[in-house]
Amino acid sequence: MAGEKILIIDPSLDDVRPLVEGLLDPEGYIVVHALDGEEGLRQALHGNPNLIIAEFAAPRRSGLDVLTQLRKAKQEIPFILTGVSGSVETFRRALRMSVVDYLIKPLDLGEVRSAITRALAKQVTPAPAKKETGLLSQGFAQINRQLEKRVRELSILQGIGKAVASVLDLEKLLKRIVEAAVYLTGAEEGFLLLLDEETNELYMRAGLGLGKKFASGFRVKSEDSLPLQVIQTGRPVMISSVTDEEKFKLKTGFLVKALLHVPLKFRDEIIGVLSVDNKISRKSFSDNDLHLLSALADYAVIAIDNARLYKHAEVEAAKFAELLSAQESAPPPPFQSGDKEARGETISLDWVVQELET
C-alpha cells in the first residue's frame, strides 16, 4: 500500500516525527501535517485525504470535534484518534462515530501500522462511495418495502383469524377470506368452491371480480375441471406467465394468464378449492402467494367446520328444548296418598323426628 494521503492533526512534533520517519515515509505514504484542529478540518474537507490520524486534545478544535464535523458534512474518511489517555465516555463516543481505532501515546509503530492497514482496507474512493451509498440506500428501501408488505400480510391474516373465532355468519366470513386472497396475492379475481359429495360437483360459495354469472349458484363437475387435480391429489396447482397464444379456458369459463388453486383440506378429506387468477395482467404468482393462499384456505376450513358445529349445536338445542317442553306438559305420574316423597313434598327434619318417635 503506497501513495495514499494521510493527514496528521497533532501539535507535537516530537510525536509526529518518529511516526513519519519510522513508518509513513519508508512505506511510501504521502503525509500532510496540521498543527491544530481548525487547520486539520480545512485540510480534511478540501485536501481529500485517504486517512486521518488526529490527536484527541488538538488545540482550537479537538480530534473528536474534527470527526464530528466531518460526519455532519457526510464525509466518511477513515479516522484514527490518538491521545495520552482517554475516558470510557471518550471511547464510547469515538466508537459510535465509527473510529477505526483509539491509540494511546507513546505510539507503538506496530499498532499504528495495523490500524492504518485496517482503515485503508475499508476506505472507498469518493466516486464509488457515492455509487455504493446509492445502491445501499436502494437496498435498504427495498428491504423496508418488503418488511412493510410482510407486516400488512400478517395483519390481514391475524384479522381473518380473529374473524374466524368471532363471526358466525359463514357467508360473510368466506367472502372476507376471498377478498383477502385477492388483495394479498394481487390477483384480479378470486373464488371459493366447495365439493358436493352427492353430485360430485363444485359449487360457488364466494367470489370476487367474477360478475353476477358466477357470483352464486354456479356449479361445475369436478371431473371436467382443472380443480380435479387439486381435489384428487390434495396439492396446489400454480400456472403462471401464460402468453396470449397459450391462453387456456378453465371449465369455469375463465380466460386467464395465471392462476393458483389450493385445496381446502379438512383432516384427510379435500372439501373444496380456494383460487385466484389474473385474466388481463401478466403478473405471475409466487411461492409467497401460495403460502398466503394456503393459510387463508386453512382459515376457511376452520370457519366451515365451526359453522357445521354451530348448526349441529343449534339442532341439538332445539331437540332438547322440545323434549323439555313435552316433559313439562305431560301429566304427573300416579302416587300413593301416604307417600310424601312421591308427592314431591319437602321432607323436613321435624317430620323425620316424628316418624322415628312413632
Rank of each mutant, 00 (worst) to 15 (best):
I6C: 10
D10N: 02
D10P: 06
L19E: 05
E27F: 10
V32I: 14
A34E: 12
A44V: 07
N50G: 15
N50F: 05
A57P: 14
A58L: 00
A58F: 01
V66A: 04
V66I: 06
L67N: 08
T68I: 11
Q69R: 13
I80G: 06
L81T: 00
E89N: 10
T90V: 11
T90W: 07
R93L: 11
V99F: 01
G110N: 15
S114F: 06
R118I: 03
K122Y: 02
A127G: 06
S137C: 11
F140A: 12
N144R: 15
R145T: 07
K149Q: 15
Q158L: 14
G159S: 02
L168F: 13
L170S: 04
L173S: 04
K175L: 00
A181F: 00
V182D: 11
T185Y: 11
E189R: 15
G190M: 03
G190Y: 04
F191E: 04
E197W: 04
T199K: 14
L202G: 11
R205G: 11
G209Q: 02
F218C: 07
K221V: 09
S222V: 15
S225T: 04
L226I: 14
R235Y: 02
P236L: 07
S240Y: 06
F254A: 14
L259H: 00
D268W: 06
D268E: 13
E269W: 05
I271N: 06
L274D: 07
K279V: 09
L292W: 00
L293I: 09
A295Y: 01
L296A: 02
L296G: 01
L296E: 09
I302D: 08
Y310D: 13
K311T: 07
E314N: 08
L323G: 08
A326F: 02
E328R: 15
S329P: 03
P332W: 03
P333T: 06
F335T: 10
G338E: 09
D339E: 06
D339Y: 04
A342D: 09
R343C: 12
I347Y: 02
S348N: 04
E357M: 10
